[in-house]
Amino acid sequence: MTITIKDLARVAGVSYSTVSKALNDSPLVKPETKNKILKVAEEMGYEPNFAAQRLVSKESKVIGLIWPTLERLAPSSLVSNINEEITKSSYSMILSVNSIQSSIEMFKRFQVDGVILFSEGESESTETLSLPSVTYGVGKNKSYPVIDVNYQAAMEDAVNYLHQLGHRKIAFVGNLTTTDERQIEKSIGFQKAMTKLEIFEDGCLIDTEGFGWYDGYMATIRLINSPYQPTAIISASYDISAGLVRALRQENFNVPKDVSVLSYDNIPQMANMEIPLTSVGVPVEEIAQAMVQTLTKFIKYPQSVPLVQSLKPVITERSSCAPAEKNLISE
């Protein structure tokens, strides 16, 4: 038997409207009353009827999230953080790993209030304009709000950080052949910083031709056997870094004694790698919070949300970087 709000009101001994307000986390309900109602709802196995709720409030309190791939750890970590932020905002989340077009069509049927969109290189769909939408990445060529995480600035910070440690031969290991604007911005930032410092050399850019562990591993093996011998390496992502570190250790390089490693993706999991990696980027918790807060505001007050919001990347120091004089790879 389906449990309704009226059933909850009868058991809790309060009015129908009080139950409705409590379930929507309204500040108009006293905390003790709210806790009592929530406990009754849990004990009775109450499940909200989103369709009915939308008829009354014009909101389903559901957000759709489109992510075409969950294979890499950093995106998965961001999805988890987004889900936590959505829950805090009294919304629920539906996750789709299908194409943008099919996901949007499904979300329309579920009557979601808004969409968090991750294109992963897929071309933007004009269908997203029919629903309030927010994305993250690069703040250009978008027709809906984007949280710009400043990939170029992150790479410039990484190069400058290593340069201050005395490194002059720095390599970048990342996917250079992709059309994904996120990866393109990273390589541009690296090249700009290296050129400004007058230390850019042929051979310092290593193409992984992919995003996975094995891609990072093979690219690092090629780097080790190339004429360009760096004292420090910047990796484009967590997964690439995992393969990079494995290749270095297999070839008997000590990190950071022989070579320093700094990785993009500022996620807590960097501390749990074979070698805890110093990382750069906007902290994943900050990205998730900005995206959810922007979308929930955009749903209610679309004119109040700017098209681009820029976040500042930071460097989280761990144990994978050391001053250049301690590095032996080029000796």
Rank of each mutant, 00 (worst) to 15 (best):
L197I: 08
S99M: 06
K88S: 00
G212F: 02
F172Y: 11
Q111Y: 14
H163E: 05
T128R: 15
L117M: 09
P145D: 08
F110A: 14
F110W: 13
T208R: 02
Q111K: 15
A154T: 02
S76G: 08
N83T: 04
V79F: 11
I184V: 14
I206G: 08
S102I: 11
V112M: 13
N175R: 03
S133H: 04
F110I: 13
Q111F: 13
E84A: 02
G166K: 01
I188V: 10
S103L: 05
G212I: 10
Y151P: 00
K169Q: 15
F172P: 00
A171C: 05
D113E: 03
V97S: 10
I94R: 11
L70D: 04
K88I: 03
S119Q: 06
L131D: 10
G174A: 11
Q164M: 07
Y91P: 03
H167T: 02
E124H: 13
L197C: 11
E85F: 03
I184K: 14
K142N: 14
S92V: 09
S123V: 09
T69W: 01
D148T: 05
V149H: 01
V138H: 04
T177M: 05
T87R: 06
L131Q: 10
E127L: 15
S187C: 06
A193T: 12
L95V: 10
G210Y: 00
R109P: 14
W67P: 01
I170F: 06
V138A: 08
A158C: 14
I94H: 09
K142G: 09
K108D: 09
I82D: 10
N141H: 06
E156P: 09
V134K: 01
K88F: 01
F118H: 14
R168D: 09
A171G: 09
E124Q: 07
S90V: 05
D157V: 02
R168I: 05
S90W: 01
V146Q: 02
R168M: 05
T87C: 10
N81C: 11
I206M: 06
T87K: 15
S76M: 12
R168A: 03
S77V: 09
T178E: 00
